[in-house]
Design a protein around this nucleic acid. Structure first.
Lengths: 235, 235
DNA sequence: GCAAAAGTGTTTGATCTACACCCATGA
DNA sequence: TCATGGGTGTAGATCAAACACTTTTGC
C-alpha cells in the first residue's frame, strides 16, 4: 500500500483538536496557590479555568505550552513539565479535544499576573478557595497536585516557588504546605544542609522582631555536579 | 460569542490525528524484553515498531490503549499506565499525529505473541537486540525504560513480570535486570520479606540440581490494605 | 527582662551494608 | 562427597526521630 492510499484511508481519523493546559503553582509564604483565569469565551464562559489554549497545527506541543505560559505570565525559562494527557470523548463541548496538561512552579514574588491575550486577568487562588472549574480542569489540577507532591520530595524543585534568597524556615513552611505535614525543625535543617546544595549567604532577614534568620540561595551548579555523580535529592 | 461561532472559528485547529503506542515489557528470566511488531503498512513498512494504532473519533484514549493491547496480546486486566505524549510536528509522515505512549508489564510465561489484526507477528526482543525503529519509537522506548526504573522501586509492579509463583532469587534477578545493578542476597530477602507482601507457599522449585527454593506469591490483598494505612513499597 | 523565633546537640532506636556461614539437593 | 545455589545471623556503620537546650533579636 502506498503512502497516498494510506493517507486517504486514514483521513477520517484526523479530526482531533489538541490543547494544552498549564497548572502553575505559586507560594505566598503560607499556602500553595495556583494560577487561574476566568474564561471570556464559550464554552464555560465566566468559569474559572486553567490557562490553556488550542495547539496550532504547525506547533510542537511542548512549544505550545511554553508559548501559552509566556503569553500569560511574561516569564521565560521556567521549569515546565508534562503531566498527563486527558482524552475523554466528551470532555469538550466543541468537539473532540485531547488536552495535555503541563505544570510549572514559579516564584510569586517575581510575578504579578497581568492581563493576557484573552483580556481576562489571571489571578492566584489558594487551593481551598477554588469553586467549580471549566471542563475537567478539577481533575487535571488534582493530578498535578499528586504529581507535585511526588516530585517535590525527589527533586529540588521546591526552590522554584521561593524568592532567590530565603530562610530555612521559609523552605520548611513551603514543604509543609506542599506535602501537608509537619517537620521537626532541627531534623529538617540537618537533612537539607547535609545535602550541601544550599549556599549560605552573609545576609540575614531584615525587620523582624526576633532573631533574624540567615538567608540561603539554592546552588544550581553544585546540585548539577552532585547529580552527575549520582547524588539523589530526597525529601 | 456563541458556541456555534466559536466552533466555526476554531475548526481549522481540528485536524490532528491521535494515536496510542504501547511499550510492553516482559522478562524471560534473565533479561528485560519488549514486545515489538514489524510494520505491514506505510510509512516505515517493514520496520520494527511499538504496537500502536490511531485512536477512533469516538473512543477514549485509555480505552484505545486497552483495545490495542488486547487486540495484540489477547490479555485483559493488565497493568497499563500512561507514560507521556509525543507531539513533534514532523513525527509522522502522514500528517499531524500526536501519540500518547502507554506502558505495561506482562508475565511472559502466560503469553505467547500471536498474529494480530495487521497480520504481522508481535515478538519479544531484548533491549540490546533492537535495531532501528519506526517513527520516534526509540525515544518512547527510552522514556518508558526510565519510567519503569523509577516506578519499579516505589511500587510493587515488578511482580507483574514474573510467574504467579516465584522464588526470591527470580525476583532479585528481575530487579537486577531492570535496574541494572546487583543486590546482596541476604539484604535483598530481608528487605522484601520485611514488607510482608509476599505469601510463602508450601511448595518449592522442582527439578533443580541444588537445594530447591521456596516459592512465593505476591499478596495483593495484603498490599492493598497496607497501602491504605500509608505503607510505601520501596526498593 | 521577656517573647519569639533562630539555631544546635544528644540520645535512642531503626535500618543498611558487608560478609561469613550453614543447609538441602542432585549427581 | 562435592558443587551449587538456598537461606540465615551478626557486627558496625549510618541514618532518623524526638526533644531539650542555647542564641539573638525587638520591644
Amino acid at each position: 500500500m502506498s503512502l497516498e492510499s494510506e493517507r486517504a484511508r486514514l483521513s477520517p481519523y484526523f479530526q482531533f483538536g489538541q490543547s494544552v493546559d498549564c497548572v502553575v503553582f505559586g507560594f505566598d509564604g503560607i499556602r500553595l496557590q495556583i494560577l487561574v483565569i476566568e474564561r471570556g469565551a464559550e464554552p464555560f464562559f465566566g468559569y474559572e479555568a486553567l490557562p490553556g489554549d488550542l495547539v496550532r497545527m504547525d506547533e510542537d506541543i511542548d512549544e505550545a505550552a511554553t508559548r501559552i505560559l509566556h503569553d500569560l505570565t511574561g516569564l521565560d525559562n521556567v521549569f515546565l513539565d508534562q503531566l498527563k494527557t486527558f482524552g475523554r470523548v466528551d470532555r469538550h463541548p466543541l468537539g473532540r479535544v485531547v488536552t495535555t496538561a503541563f505544570y510549572s512552579l514559579i516564584n510569586q514574588t517575581k510575578y504579578n499576573p497581568r492581563p493576557a491575550s484573552w483580556a481576562v486577568k489571571a489571578r492566584w487562588k489558594s487551593l481551598s478557595d477554588l469553586e467549580d472549574m471549566a471542563f475537567d480542569h478539577r481533575e487535571l489540577l488534582q493530578t498535578a497536585l499528586d504529581s507535585l507532591q511526588r516530585q517535590v520530595r525527589q527533586h529540588p524543585i521546591g526552590f522554584e516557588l521561593l524568592p532567590e534568597e530565603f530562610t530555612l524556615a521559609q523552605l520548611q513552611t513551603l514543604y509543609e504546605a506542599v506535602l501537608n505535614t509537619q517537620f521537626d525543625k532541627a531534623n529538617f535543617r540537618k537533612k537539607i544542609l547535609s545535602m550541601e546544595v544550599l549556599k549560605p549567604l552573609d545576609k540575614t532577614q531584615q525587620a523582624v522582631r526576633h532573631r533574624p534568620a540567615r538567608l540561603y540561595r539554592f546552588d544550581t551548579q553544585r546540585y548539577t555536579s552532585l547529580a552527575k555523580q549520582g547524588f539523589l535529592f530526597e525529601l
